[in-house]
């Protein structure tokens, strides 16, 4: 019940913590990030079929990567939760499947030192609304989505559908988030 009431609160914007790590190697900021995200990464990995020991080890690794790659985080493209999810996902592929994970090449620009605050706010808000929409889904539908992300859906289940051409990449991400959220209804 405690967990439930915690979960109904809006997720806070963690990007300030990342800035403090980049600018001041702030260990207190990292400790707060760790307290929030490490247990979630561990949970994600266990739900993906990893045992507790491996999940613990990978979660520590993921959080160390967060420290080392903090300067690569772009708050106008992803929330901290999304960014950490991608690190955990890649770690899971390394650890559980032992596959290489080819990554797209970097965009011709990196994260701006000071992305416009409006861009950051809009991305955070869109993601929060997406989260609310996912939580409001009927149980069965949400379970399907969780299964797709936590479980190992066979590639046999990949059906052919047409992609949707959507302007700059950041506004496109927000558009896509908005569209996803509406598709959840």
């Amino acid at each position: 019940l405690n967990g439930k009431s915690e979960r109904t609160q809006a997720d806070i914007d963690w990007s300030g913590h990342i800035s403090r790590i980049i600018e001041a190697q702030d260990k207190a900021a990292f400790a707060e990030l760790f307290a929030h995200f490490a247990p979630r990464v561990k949970s994600f990995l266990m739900r993906s079929g990893s045992n507790a020991t491996l999940a613990e080890d990978c979660a520590q690794d993921v959080m160390a990567t967060v420290w080392h790659k903090a300067h690569l985080y772009d708050p106008a493209r992803a929330t901290v939760a999304t960014w950490i999810f991608t690190i955990a996902r890649n770690r899971r592929i390394d650890a559980l499947r032992k596959d290489r994970r080819p990554e797209p090449e970097d965009l011709p620009w990196g994260p701006e030192p000071e992305p416009p605050i409006a861009d950051v706010m809009a991305l955070q808000q869109e993601t929060e609304m997406l989260r609310v929409a996912i939580r409001a889904l009927p149980e069965a539908q949400r379970e399907l989505i969780e299964q797709a992300y936590f479980g190992d859906l066979s590639h046999r289940e990949i059906a052919a559908q047409t992609g949707l051409p959507l302007g700059t990449i950041k506004s496109r991400i927000r558009l896509a988030l908005d569209r996803l959220r509406h598709a959840m209804k």
Binding site: D11, F37, R40, V41, F44, R77, A78, T79, A81, T82, W83, I84, F85, T86, A88, R89, T127, L130, R131, I134, I145, E146, Y149, F150, I169, I173, A176, L177, R179, L180
Partner: peptide, 12 residues
Amino acid sequence: EALEAVGGCLLT
């Protein structure tokens, strides 16, 4: 990247 945000929401 938007679909990665779904993963971020589930992680939270």
